[in-house]
Design a protein around this nucleic acid. Structure first.
Lengths: 343, 343
DNA sequence: GTGAAAGCGCTAACAC
DNA sequence: GTGTTAGCGCTTTCAC
């Protein structure tokens, strides 16, 4: 392969100056005679010189690279965050290495080590708790490389954290349903999920404000955040004698399953059942287009990256920050006023 | 920040051996006395030594890093490819730097240069043609770093190319409709798209095999691959006197728009109109679940990465390869036999 | 302003 | 098997 790699030495020779001068001219590290500068640039162009960042990084002990540890880039939620991160990192001259860990501790450990060895200058993570993640964060901290949490484990103490207010989001959704006149509102949550608990809090707060007693029997617990779980859970509550007039589900995938179940048993949306889903990835193209509680993934990514770069560049002497973004309600056609009660 | 960074020197001192021996022990570059080896590992562990890849990379002139140039990771199509790439790269010890260029020549140029300066060992691209892309590919080639095209510009000559057979995919979709008995089949393509032309070829081949004359008036040209274009185009053909019994659309987003238009004018799917879409990202959760022609994005990513790594490791003396994957038909409920013609 | 030289942290000859 | 030494390609004192 490859032609003889051209280094600063060649450029310097071609321009008839020392390596140091060539470096200074090209890198703008120190003032260089204009005429010489021109000669150096000309030589570099002519030889197709490509600045070797590996060498530079070794010498300067900086890499302008950060790592992003996420479950799966194929999940649009994380893709949104990733894009936000990359946009601000890129605009400030940093590259980012993506690591899909599938929430697998073994992969987390492998990638974590890899990032540290690559001497990334900072790490962002969006993954749930496990031992390997905790250890990664700790050794990173011990090595003085900042770590910021963006929708990742709340059980891992990290310097900065970016999330959105799950409680507020659901408070808003619930309020909207209550304002429409709904009083029997089913809630589709996920068992054992901390976020689900916070969402539930928001719901309760709204109910309280409307003087509607919280009814635990209207809370359905799905096994996980999947379409299938949503489908199965919805089948159960749709089969009950009790007919809620609205459903607030804590995840888009769950809602898709619920929609399918509703269609199968002839429950029309929104005429028979109003539906709100958390997250707004494909809600708009579903049938009917879903009223949704939108999570600001892209903005979260941007802000997270900004916090990280600040720590990298200003040094690590800032106290830890928690940024909680808002989740907004996007009203579409899956919600309407409830039908009058029969009987 | 940071504790005094521990280097091989410290580890060697701690273990009471030379730097070279420590390096050999840790890196497994050469046989080392078992007992000494143990001492070195123990010292490394004790000091929390992290192998410095920047230094190693400079010395060995390798980086085990590749670059992936794509339009936008937020687009599930590219996210699928990216995941395939990262999985095989990761499993073979390579990291990948993602670059979202939004098809913007300026970004393409910036990222291209950045990758070369980082001394990536190979580049994969999935972006349409522009001058900057062409130049990037050429300078990479000139520097001996292999470049592989995965669903990227067919106008840029590259060493290897991975695509799927657009013509075959649509041939299969068309055949399926014809087998069901459809004879008036509308085709929703995109103006000025090379892929669309190949898809059209597949359609014509199927029609020919069934002895059904190709009718250009059934081909609708959308302005681009967006929902809105699909909606507008569908509105037009649904309003015509001529009522095709089926629609084959060359993109999922187009189909979503078409579905919406159909609902608005009371055309039921599949009773009044059978629909097939190309690509299978959210086709399953649409209403009705769409029969789709699936594009093997993940597999394409895997294969592309494998080809690239092969070139990196075996050297560049293989002749160029073109891998054309199959697109498969996934039958769901948006297609059925046509209704009998009225009158 | 410019050049000589040291050295970032590692690996790989080369001797022993 | 092990140690000594010479770089990888840069940036950055330090002299001039």
């Amino acid at each position: 392969m490859s032609l003889p790699k051209v280094t600063l030495r060649e450029v310097a020779n071609e321009a008839g100056v020392s390596i140091a001068t060539a470096s200074r001219a090209l890198g703008g590290y120190a003032p260089v005679n204009e005429e010489i500068k021109k000669r150096v640039f000309e030589a570099a162009r002519k030889l197709h010189y490509q600045h070797n960042l590996v060498a530079k990084n070794l010498r300067t002990r900086r890499t302008f690279t950060i790592g992003y540890l996420l479950p799966d880039i194929t999940n649009p939620f994380y893709a949104g965050i990733a894009r936000g991160i990359q946009d601000v990192a890129g605009s400030r001259g940093y590259s980012v290495i993506l690591c899909n860990n599938d929430n697998d501790p073994a992969k987390t450990e492998r990638f974590g080590k890899m990032l540290l060895r690559h001497r990334v200058e900072g790490i962002i993570y969006s993954t749930p708790y496990n031992e390997a993640l905790l250890e990664m964060v700790e050794t990173a901290a011990a090595n003085g490389i900042p770590v910021v949490n963006c929708y990742g484990s709340t059980r891992v103490p990290s310097q900065d954290l970016v999330w959105s207010d799950a409680s507020l989001g659901c408070y808003r959704g619930m309020r909207y349903l209550l304002e429409l006149g709904h009083r029997e509102i089913a809630i589709l949550k996920v068992k054992g999920s901390g976020v689900s608990e916070r969402r539930l809090e928001g719901c309760r707060k709204a109910l309280e404000e409307f003087g509607v007693p919280f009814d635990p029997s209207l809370v359905i617990e799905a096994g996980d955040y999947s379409q299938k779980s949503g489908y199965l859970s919805a089948k159960i509550f749709l089969g009950n004698r009790r007919k809620p007039s609205a459903l607030l589900s804590f995840n888009e995938q769950l809602s898709i399953g619920a929609l399918k179940a509703a269609r199968e048993v002839g429950v029309r949306i929104p005429q028979d059942l109003s539906v709100i889903a958390v997250d707004d990835i494909i809600a708009e193209v579903l049938e009917p287009p879903l009223t949704a509680i939108a999570i600001p993934k892209y903005e979260a990514g941007e802000i997270t990256a900004a916090l990280l770069l600040e720590r990298i560049e200003q040094g690590d002497n800032v106290s830890s920050r928690q940024i909680i973004l808002e989740e907004k309600l996007v009203v579409r056609s899956s919600t309407q006023v409830p039908r009058k009660k029969e009987g």
